[in-house]
Structures are given as C-alpha cells and as structure tokens.
Write a protein that binds this DNA or RNA. Structure first.
Lengths: 340, 340
DNA sequence: TTGTATGCGTTATCAT
DNA sequence: ATGATAACGCATACAA
C-alpha cells in the first residue's frame, strides 16, 4: 500500500519548499534547471498527480458536469448521454449522472446536492412530474446562483437558459405528409400523456399535416396511452373500432407493439397499414418488417448540449451572451413499415 | 444573481467568528441558544449549504463513486448502472460515469483521472481490449493506493478485489439442458469473441450440458461472430449448412437476428427450432414469438456491487475483510421461442 | 533562484 | 460561550 503523494511530501523529502515544488512541476522558469530536474524526477518516480479536490477548491471550478435525466433504460436518453459523456470527456470534464426517475422530488434533491460545489453546470431533461407540476423554482434558483443549465428535449419556456430540442413539429408533419403522399387518409396518432412539450409539438405537427391536405382531424384516431403499463388491450380495441391506414407513434415501443397487434389482427404492414415511430432504436431495426422511424440523433443532441454548457462555463462573463435554443433536425428513416 | 453563501459570509454579517457559525449550525451545545437561533435563521434565510468540495478536502472522502463501463447503449450495462445509481444515491453517494468504449487506453486514462481525489472507489466492468491485453496494472496500482474497486460481469481472476458475477456456467447449462429435455439434440451456440470470461463460462456450460446428456460436442455448431458488424450473411450461411434444432445465443441481438433469419428460411419457432438468448431486454419482449431469455438481473447486480463497494469504503479498516465474489443467479425465462 | 504567506471553505482543537 | 489557529492540497503574489 503506497498512498498518494502530495507536494508537501515531495518538499519535505527533497528539503525544498512547497511552492518550489509546485513551480518546478509547472516548469516555471523561476526555478533552476537542476532543481526542476530533481523535483520532476522524484515526482515522476512516485507518480505524483495533483489532487483534483484541492484544485477544485482553489480554482472554484470542478470540471464536473451534472446530468439529470428521467430514465437511463431508454434508448433516446442513453444515446444523448453518450453524446454528452463523449464531448465532455474530450474537453476534460467528468460527468456525474443522476436519474430523476420521472420524480420531481428526486430531481430537486439531486440537483441541490450536486449544486453545492460538486459541479460547474447542469444538463437536464425535465422529469414528467416536474412538467406536470410546472414548478421550476429549483432550476430558477440555480440559475440565479450563477450555475449554468442546458435543457434538452423536455424543456420549458419558463426557464431562461440554453436549450437543445428536436424539430418535433416539423418532423411529425413530415411523417404524416409522407403517409398522405403514399395514399393514406385515415391516420392515427398514438401518443402518451407524459412527455408534455414534445408530444404536444408532435401532435400539432400531425394536425398541421392533415389540415394542409384538407383532411379533417378526427379525435377518435388519437389514442393517448398511459406509459409503462400493458396497453395491449387498449391498442387492440382501438384498431378493432377504427378503420386506419397509417399510424404515427411517439415512441418505438408503441410502434412495434402496434405493428405486432395489427399483424395479428390480419393486416399487412405496410400494404394495409403503414407505421412510423419516433426513436430510431434497436427495437425498430430488429422488427419485421423493419420499422420506418424518426431518428432523433440523440448523440448529436448530447454533444451539442455539452458544447453549449461548456462554452458558457468557460466564457469569461457568462452573463453576456443571450441564451440560445438550438434545434436538432430529426430524420425520417424509411424502412419496411411504410410505402416509400 | 445571488451567489452561494459561506460560513465566512455569515460570520461577517452577524459579527461572530467562523467557528461559532460552524458550531451553531451543527447544533453544538457550546453555543448559546440565542446565538444559535440567530445564526440558524440567517443561514436558512440565505439558504446556506456547506460546500461539498471543502468537505471532501477536509474529510478526505468525496462521497463519489466512479463507474467505468464499456458501453452504455446496451441493455445489460444500462440496468446495472441503474442499480448502482439507485443504491449509491440512497446511501448519499454520487456516481461519476466514464465509458471506456471497449478501449484499454480510455479505461486507464479515465480511471487515473478520477483516482486523483475525485472518487472514493470504483465499480467497473473490464473493456474488451483490457481483457484481450490481459494488462491490469492500472487496476492493481489503484488497489495498491488503497482505492477500493468492485468488478462486475467482466472480471479477471488476476485482480484481487470484490466481484459480482453471473452464474454463467450454470445458467448456460440449464438452458441447454432445457433444449435437450424438450427433444433437441443438435444445439448451436452463437457466441462472440469479445466478452472473454463470460462467454467462456457460457460455452463451458453449453459443453457440460451436452456431455452430461452424452451428446457429442460438434464444433461446427458453434458460431463465433464479430461484434457490431452486419452478421446476416454469416448467420444465414450457418443455418443453411447445418441442421439445427435449438440455439443458445450469448446476447439478445444475436437471438432476435437468428430468429428472424431462420423464420425467413422457412423454419418455425419454436416448433422446428428453439431459441434462448442471454439478456432479458426489450428486444426479447417485443419480438414475435417473444423470446425465451436468460435474465441477468442487472439492476440487482448493480445494487450489490454498490453495496460491496460502500461497505468496504465505510468499514474502518478496509484491509481487514477478505475479498468476496458474489454470484447473481440468472433466471431462465421461458416464453414463446422454446417448447416449455 | 528560492521561500513565505495567504486563501479556497470547512472542521476540530485549543485558547480565552 | 466564543474565538483564534491549524489543517486538508494546491497555487500565487510577494519577500528575500
């Protein structure tokens, strides 16, 4: 067992002062070559590394980024996280992750915990509960304290900070337009009550595409499903009671579930019914036929969020620059579940 | 903008000494009730929170755990991570994640970075490259410095530390035995060259089951696939050239791919060919038929790893207790891709 | 060229 | 009951 060595240890051992050691290791030209060589050799031999905590205390910056996401076992968040981690790491930052688990309290507690010096800034996507409550005081207080925050995907207009979002409206409209262009008129939307801002935009895009093409919006064709429960019966009923030619789903679980159910009901995909799902994850790639999807480019989103945050943290006066909202353009990936 | 308040600020404002403030906020009985009340009220009003970094420096413990995993976009690691995060959080620890991306260098660099004071201990699963190189000096050095490490899943006997593993051997044997019990004799193993220790154990379990049942091991029925490449042709050829009644796959991607290909080749699952895959992820649950799987209980594994680590970090003399290797029992989940 | 002193925010020990 | 001081590990302005 050989514990970590400090500047003090080196200084004592070599009979010089701590500051001499510090300067020598920074290659300061104040120090004579001989002394520097001696100290460097010693430090190298004992594998000296400066203590991050001490540096953080001194510099008032930790080089840690706090990431708070609602869920990690979810393809989209996972890829975003990878993007964040990758970029942050390249820039010399570490990433501390907290999972809010869709809970407001957890989000608040975790963020306050980290905000007491552990991190220099946050990247987060709002929990379902937070969106439902519409209570953002915890975020506002952090911003007030001068801690920069970047929101992604699940954002709120009430919070003044940098943001990264998907062009949900446009891509939903594009998807529905594709359905219409390939001959469908009776188009269903399978959505969830949880991802408020995003599913709202997607719904608006869906509606917009219908209106542009002079198709009446039929609310019976919009199915709102509870998350994380077995929806099989709800979905089955839905398709039994409605005549449908195309389906837009707000996530890939719904999409693959729908496909499976309508196939069992005897319909052919995409001949009888076309399907497009949000999130281009593995579920979509391994189904048969392969699902046409909307790729959200999570990794890119994560990278961009990290870039925005680090830029702001490293800019001399964080106050100066106005807050930006960057938009990631989703891509419609046409595969086997649509007529292309 | 109201920046964080410190003990010093409070002291100055209330015209008392820093140590009085510190003691008052800790409810020390050295301090008079009046002073305590005054200080507490002030601190509460200004939302004082002790600075984590300063505490870390003083206490020589950060309450941070470093987690290094090869990949995050992978159901198994994701669930393990969730288990770690959950338990760690409950115990007041934060989690810093680094993704080694299967690279030895990244693993080393990230760990050395974190080891300089940022974390109190590590939980990790070895990268593919590290396993291939069989070079564990970075881990040994950290252990030598007194930094506790818990390895999970991808471990090595060479490293002396706490470990958490799956009973890969037994569960593979159980799966193959199930195939045999339900009438299969020509049993294939689809494996990968990368996850060394685990796939080795799984292979041994496969072999053991065959031997117990006096079935000769036919190496032509063992297909080793490269990871992360398109294996469709390899798999197709494999099934065209071999007569097979059952397949054990070391991950769910292989399993669902195999199923899809053999269905296209005109075989019925499970009537003609049965399939079991390792990892009980969403791919398996959304395929048709639903895949029979081996649940690895990743979350439990993560929790246990975190528990082992925290126990060791918090025990007064870490040196005392001998290292443990805990075994998580996998579960064979029989669904639609096997005859049950 | 080298060393001393100070401070980052906190706590603990030892005065007063 | 309250305060001064040292220490955690490091960097830096300022002395010598």
């Amino acid at each position: 067992m050989k514990p970590k060595i400090t500047l003090k240890d080196i200084a004592k051992e070599l009979d010089v002062s701590i500051s001499t050691v510090s300067k020598a290791l920074k290659n300061s030209k104040e120090i004579s070559k001989e002394t520097k060589d001696k100290i460097k050799a010693f430090a190298k031999f004992y594998n000296y590394r400066p203590n991050n905590i001490a540096l953080s205390l001194k510099n008032k910056r930790t080089k840690n980024i706090g990431v708070v996401i609602p869920d990690i076992v979810h393809h989209f968040f996972t890829t975003v996280f990878r993007g964040i981690e990758k970029y942050a790491n390249e820039m010399g930052y570490n990433v501390i992750v907290c999972i809010s688990d869709e809970s407001f309290d957890k989000e608040v507690i975790n963020m306050e915990m980290l905000a007491n010096g552990s991190i220099d800034g946050f990247i987060l996507s709002l929990s379902a509960e937070t969106q439902k409550k519409n209570d953002f005081t915890h975020l506002k207080e952090l911003l007030d304290q001068g801690i920069p925050i970047v929101l992604f995907d699940r954002i709120s207009a009430e919070i003044e900070c940098d943001k990264v979002v998907l062009n949900d409206f446009e891509i939903a409209r594009e998807a529905v337009s594709h359905f219409i262009a390939t001959g469908s008129k009776k188009i269903a939307l399978i959505t969830t009550e949880r991802y408020f801002n995003v599913s709202e935009s997607r719904k608006e895009g869906y509606v917009a595409a219908l209106k542009t093409n002079e198709i009446e919006v039929d609310n019976r064709l919009i199915l709102t499903l509870p998350h994380d429960r077995d929806n099989t019966n709800l979905i089955t009923e839905f398709f039994q009671h409605n005549e449908i030619e195309a389906i837009l789903c707000v996530n890939e679980m719904f999409a693959v579930q729908c496909m499976s159910i309508i196939q069992q009901l005897g319909y052919a995909v995409p001949e009888d019914i076309s399907i497009i799902g949000f999130t281009d994850g593995i579920l979509s790639r391994y189904s048969s036929p392969k699902l046409s999807t909307i790729a959200q480019h999570g990794e890119k989103m994560g990278e961009l969020a990290a870039k925005l945050l680090i830029n702001r943290m490293e800019s001399v006066q964080m106050v100066e620059e106005p807050f930006k909202t960057e938009v990631i353009n989703a891509t419609l990936i046409k595969r086997g579940s649509t007529i292309n």
